[in-house]
Amino acid sequence: MNIFRLAGDMTHLASVLVLLLKIHTIKSCAGISLKTQELYALVFATRYLDLFTDYISLYNTLMKLIFLVSSFSIVWYIRHHKIVRRSYDKDQDTFRHYFLVLPCFLLALVINEKFTVKEIMWTFSLYLEAVAILPQLVLLQRTRNIDNLTGQYVFLLGAYRSLYILNWIYRYFTEPHYVHWITWISGLVQTLLYADFFYYYFQSWKNNVKLELPA
């Protein structure tokens, strides 16, 4: 494992922890899109089917379990926790799941490395992860005023994606036969979706003002 991959995994982990911390301590999920969180839970559930079939390393298994448990906990908190759920702004978070899930699934049926259930689910999870942040970005645009933790959450997710790209470049030059078009293209699309957010995030950071997105 290279340093980019490790740093990428750690920022990914940090993003989830920031979110859980916010929900757990402030007992609020204001500004968080339940739609995005549900999509991430679906992403992990479909991608980590190999937990049952392949063993890669203890690190790999543990991280997969952490992402599965944390994503489903976040969804549970927002939907069912008696205090947290009251802060969920249902009327603003209107993105439709199937609008993203269906095209990703159809694309996975057509473009995949192998036509098996496991492969198609894995490919589907990559396509879905690429666009799963969209409901969150739409919600941020709508509410415009973003609290620090939500801003940091999205920033850490974007950092994780950028580090994964550096990891792929590194692996391409250091490992033989390391070519994964599906992973790369969907990963690139995913990272580009953050570009706009990043721009405003850095602007607010540079000028030392509260992050606010233009309408």
């Binding site: 991280m63 894995w122 490992e175 033989p176 036969h177």
Partner: peptide, 10 residues
């Protein structure tokens, strides 16, 4: 022939 790398990423 070399098998493709395992999917060891998260």
């Amino acid at each position: 022939y070399q098998a493709p790398p395992v999917k060891d990423e998260l």
